[in-house]
Write a protein that binds this DNA or RNA. Structure first.
Length: 590
RNA sequence: CGGGGUGUAGCUUAGCCUGGUAGAGCGCCUGGUUUGGGACCAGGAGGUCGCAGGUUCGAAUCCUGUCGCCCCGACCA
């Protein structure tokens, strides 16, 4: 039981000027956080209580899924990162940590970095400690601070330079075992997000720089989120836009039979899909082939899309290049024989075809059947280009960005899109890190094998803000029971009246005995101030004790989520409060 | 890193265009009246106008540089 007057909850009437979105404003107004600098926040006492609630529930769910908690350093020797598989990609967002001294200690400082995540630390540790299949599988986790020098921190805790994250790492003897561990974690995540009272959905996701074979993101639906989720209510399909696919090419689709011969025609100055759509050419975008040139591991490769489609660059990750980027016009011309805008992949028209690492075509170009594309000769295009007859395609794949309204693969119903905040991510990593760091074990046949890894993250501090974004109204935060900093707020309107405070303590003790955390507002403030603050900080259950009610022998009971106020006779007070707390706890239990 | 914006008291801000005593509301302190949805009255404290340089008799205001912050983009484990 805490007394407000002896705690510290600095609430604000006005929103800070630098906050843009509701949850960020409320975090500050309700006294949960204060900013030190961009992306760096102090967790104030009330905010820290929420963090503790979330970490405790996270810990419990992971423990019951068999994960084991440990704690790793956050200052890392840079050598470990240089040894790892993603130094080149990760170093840009990593903070360097060296001495702030004036150099008088002499010699060069060793290089240290602050940990953005811990694959590079846990894998060598497990390599050193585990050598037998008998010690596998193992899943280690920690709940700790992470450091990422984000290019653009924003929206308060949503994207911060320093944040609190649960990160877990599983090590299995076999690929099947790793898949099992992955699904166990997925279930633990689902239990966690249900329990904290956040509506979240697991969506298929791209593995990005992490690498690995498959991945799910956990998204809290919110307009201010950074990610687009493509989903189908009918089938339950949900995927990040980077990963999403649709049934735009029907399963029974037959490719167009070759028709008229390929014919070159002059298109002076036409270098865009749109220009070719316009008169006098009037070739619709979905009758054109779009040819994009990339550099993958220092060789050029082509990507062919429908003219009306957009490339989803993340999907090129499936091609297996370690790094890739769009090619420059200077790189393109010597190989293709033309500048961008007149490019195509018709057999025999590419100047130096052997120089290409491949021609990768999106499935949807089959819908074009026979269409128009660049002639690899500046100012000319080719028509009557048949997909099967004329294009020099190495491999078909899924490279286009899905659009809402396209049919879902399973149900055929139109796909929908909504924004979401990514609060968790799970990856089946495979052996990418165990190979690099030599994390091996001996199996029961005396054979040396690589461990198969998974890694898992939950942004705890971001989750706190995501809950607020999802659960607030015009007056303030509306905390779910389990995540609330306190579950019960007792507003004592006349704290100078001894009977009022005595009743507050009595009801508070009853609520505590039933398992609630209790805050008593004993400040010498006017009632209006107390009610406004109560709504702002959003404690689920409010008990109001006033001098007038006390004379009638009643106090008031109100839920933050409801408008109506119940008058409860003091004599029945303890029993009623216990009953309310119990039913709330049951409703919030998973 | 590119584009846009912004920096004035603990917070929200006016003043800047057109240079001439730095103003308000909230909050804070003292006293009084109030007391069920952010009270009222009186008095008071708090600002080298982000920082540095320049122009000028004179700069919060104009110019240059610099730093911080916010938004959009790029990026994003």
């Amino acid at each position: 039981m805490k007394l407000w007057s002896q705690f510290f909850i600095p609430t604000l009437k006005e929103s800070p000027a630098d906050a843009e979105i509701a949850s960020h404003k409320l975090l500050v107004r309700a006294g949960l956080v204060r900013k030190l600098a961009g992306g760096l926040y102090t967790y104030m006492p009330l905010g820290l209580r929420v963090i503790h609630k979330l970490t405790q529930m996270c810990r419990e769910e992971l423990d019951s899924a068999g994960a084991i908690e440990l704690w790793m350093p956050h200052v890392h020797p840079v050598e470990l990162w240089q040894q790892g598989p993603r130094w080149a990609a990760a170093r840009e967002i990593m903070f360097r940590a060296d001495s702030a001294g004036d150099g008088k200690r002499g010699g060069r400082e060793p290089e240290w970095v602050l940990g953005p995540t811990h694959e590079e630390i846990i894998t060598p540790l497990v390599k050193a400690e585990i050598t037998s299949y008998r010690d596998l599988p193992k899943n280690f986790y920690q709940i700790a601070t992470k450091f990422r020098n984000e290019i653009r921190p924003r929206y308060g805790l949503m994207r911060a330079r320093e944040f609190i994250m649960m990160d877990a790492y599983s090590f299995d003897a076999t690929d099947e075992g790793a898949t099992k561990s992955y699904h166990a974690m997925k279930r633990a995540y689902e239990a966690f997000f249900r329990r904290i009272g956040a509506q979240s959905i697991a969506v298929e996701a791209d593995t990005g720089v992490m690498g690995g074979s498959f991945s799910h993101e956990f998204m809290v639906p919110a307009e201010v989120g950074d990610d687009d989720v493509i989903y189908c209510e009918e089938s339950g399909y949900a995927a990040n836009r980077e990963k999403a696919t649709s049934a735009i090419v029907p399963a029974n689709w037959t490719d167009a039979a070759p028709g008229a011969a390929v014919e070159e025609f002059a298109t002076p100055g036409v270098v865009t899909i749109a220009a070719l759509e316009a008169a006098p050419y009037s070739v619709p975008g979905d009758r054109q082939f779009k040819t994009l040139v990339f550099v993958g591991d220092s060789k050029l490769f082509l990507v062919i899309l429908r003219g009306s489609d957009e490339l989803e660059e993340a999907k090129l990750g499936s091609l297996g290049f370690t790094v890739f980027r769009p090619a420059t016009p200077e790189e393109i011309e010597p190989v293709m024989g033309a500048k961008p805008g007149s490019l195509g992949a018709v057999r025999g028209t590419i100047k130096d075809a052997p120089a290409l690492a491949g021609v990768f075509a999106d499935h949807a170009i089959r819908l074009v059947g026979e269409g128009t594309t660049g002639a690899n000769r500046d100012g000319f295009h080719l028509r009557n280009v048949n997909v099967t007859r004329d294009l020099a395609i190495t491999k078909f794949g899924d490279f286009r960005r899905v659009r809402p309204g396209e049919p879902d693969v399973q149900s055929g119903k139109p796909l929908q899109v909504r924004r979401g905040i990514e609060v968790g991510h799970i990856f089946k990593l495979g052996t990418k890190y165990s190979e690099k760091f030599g994390a091996q074990y001996t199996d029961d046949q005396k054979q040396t094998q690589l461990m198969v890894m998974g890694c898992y993250g939950i942004g705890i501090s971001r989750t706190m803000q995501a809950i607020i974004e999802q659960r607030h109204d015009a007056d303030g935060i509306v905390w779910p029971w389990n995540s609330a900093p306190f579950q019960v707020l007792i507003c004592v309107l006349d704290p100078q009246v001894p009977e009022a405070m005595a009743l507050a303590r009595q009801l508070g003790a009853a609520a505590e005995s039933a398992g609630a955390d209790v805050l008593i507002d004993d400040r010498a403030e006017r009632p209006g101030v107390k009610f406004k603050d109560a709504d702002l900080i959003g404690i689920p259950l409010r008990l109001t004790i006033g001098g007038k009610g006390l004379k009638e022998g009643i106090f008031e009971l109100k839920w933050r989520t409801q408008k109506d106020i119940a008058k409860v006779p003091v004599a029945e007070g303890e029993a009623r409060v216990v009953a309310e707390v119990n039913s709330a706890r049951q409703a919030a239990a998973v």
